[in-house]
Design a protein around this nucleic acid. Structure first.
Lengths: 275, 275
DNA sequence: TATACTAATGACCAATCGGTCAATTTGTCA
DNA sequence: TGACAAATTGACCGATTGGTCATTAGTATA
């Protein structure tokens, strides 16, 4: 494990239990068994550390949820969404705790921006899933439904994270599917009406721009030592600069790199870019 | 306004926007136009300040909600519960923000204890309300329902507090009544099953003990300058030491002091004590 | 006006913070 | 082994924190 990874892992443990502000760099370095100086060889600042932590896990979880939703039949999408969400947050319980603590609290502007971006991306995933599952029957309550679902998830998540009980991911997913169905089919008095529609789009550019994407690919090529990955990446890079292949070939190339967990995030963004 | 009240009001504004830890005593005193020394004449420490703030509003809100629920017909209880809850939190929006920020974050033990107590008291109010409204039909899902309701409330509250939109308390209450009814009548797969029952009682002594109550009464007698209140308080004090009156008379005496907002909290606890 | 008392001040304290950097250890060559 | 480079250290820095206390300002009484 690289020193950077070590610091991120150990720091996350402390952040989850004490919060970001309340954890000193000294505590982190003690907990890692390294010196303060060594910390600043891996990270420019304490802020950069938490940004990298948040980034890493948000990418991981976003990709998993997106995959689960897009690769299941319409009548199973809800279940897989909830299942993946709870599975991911419980696998990375420390991160989930950190996320909850800092969500309401943080004053690091870049961090807030990241969290807001994540929130909007979740809204988008939920919205498109609900539209696929229920069609336009829920048009007048869809934003209300999004808030209800997020509220329910949060309630259960709080319970799971801060109690010591072990629990059944399958059950929580089934329970939430039933509740979502109930609300989607029978709610007649939405509180979040469609006049708030702009809240769900404004200032959100889910797709990365060319430049960021090319940067990511360049890094990925350097880090990869599997030839088929490297070649796929080079071809994809050319396609971004000047698209000539059809969609099927592009998807195949993306699939070539998606299998490597390190490149999941890149694959996810490439897919969004070419759509 | 007393100096203590001034500090509490002004500090709350800062806490709501920056969080407790991130707000320095210097900032508070600057914002009040007083010196640092003057602050420590009113409060022993920064911790004591936030404890008094939280205490004050929790008492206020608890009493209002309890009254709304217990003084309405069964078929209107839900509506009044939600209406009062949202009305209270939006009237004291700064406090609501503080509560949300510190709920996940705080490391002051006494504060955490207070917040936990408040949480359990809310659970109790919700539980007894649901039992009254739906009877034993919801026995197998009542704990699940409590978590669902708290989740929904939190979701909407977050939306209301941190967006700039004005909103309709009546609508949010009606919307939540409908959702609660839907869930109560049709949920068949609870996630929080009755095996968690002990979570909802353990370590919770809602009722104050004799000593605390007598202390509160003594303070109230000193502060009051209305004769009927003072006399009622003196009689109630005697009844705590040695009960002789019947319940109707006791309730009447309590009602005598309940009309004064300053004594709402005392009245609420006396009612609980004599039940 | 002199006295006695409280209310209020802000310079000051030790502790802790994030961050730096000269000095030292460690690793890697010929 | 010796010479060089890279990695690592921890004493140190200025800034800020919650909290203290000798001093001053304000006011009512005699």
């Amino acid at each position: 494990m690289s020193k950077k990874q070590l610091i991120m892992d150990r720091a996350l443990e402390l952040f989850a239990n004490q919060g970001f502000e309340a954890t000193s760099v000294q505590q982190i370095t003690d907990h890692c068994g390294i010196s303060k100086g060594a910390f600043y060889l891996s990270f420019k600042s304490k802020d950069e550390l938490i940004l990298e932590i948040i980034n890493h896990f948000i990418q991981q979880i976003t990709v998993d949820i997106d995959y689960a939703v897009n690769h299941s039949k319409p009548d199973e999408k809800l279940y897989h969404f909830f299942h993946t969400t709870f599975h991911a947050f419980c696998e990375h319980a420390d991160f989930a705790k950190l996320l909850m603590k800092e969500h309401a609290h943080s004053f690091n502007e870049k961090l807030l921006e990241k969290l807001h971006d994540y929130d909007q991306r979740t809204d988008q995933i939920l919205l498109s899933m609900l539209e696929t599952v229920y069609g336009d029957k829920i048009d007048h309550i869809k934003y209300d439904l999004i808030f209800s679902i997020k509220g329910l998830i949060n309630g259960y998540l709080n319970f799971l994270l801060f109690s010591q009980h072990q629990f059944d991911v399958d059950l929580v997913a089934k329970s939430l599917v039933e509740k979502t169905n109930l609300l989607a089919r029978h709610v007649t008095i939405p509180f979040i009406t469609n006049k708030y529609e702009n809240m769900f789009q404004k200032n959100f550019h889910g797709k990365m721009d060319k430049h960021d994407l090319l940067q990511l690919i360049a890094t990925a090529i350097d880090e990869s030592d599997i030839i088929i990955e490297q070649e796929s990446l080079i071809l994809l890079k050319e396609q971004i600069i000047e698209p000539t292949f059809n969609k099927t070939i592009l998807l195949g190339l993306i699939e070539n790199i998606r299998n490597n967990p390190q490149h999941k995030w890149l694959a996810y963004n490439l897919k969004e870019y070419f759509n």
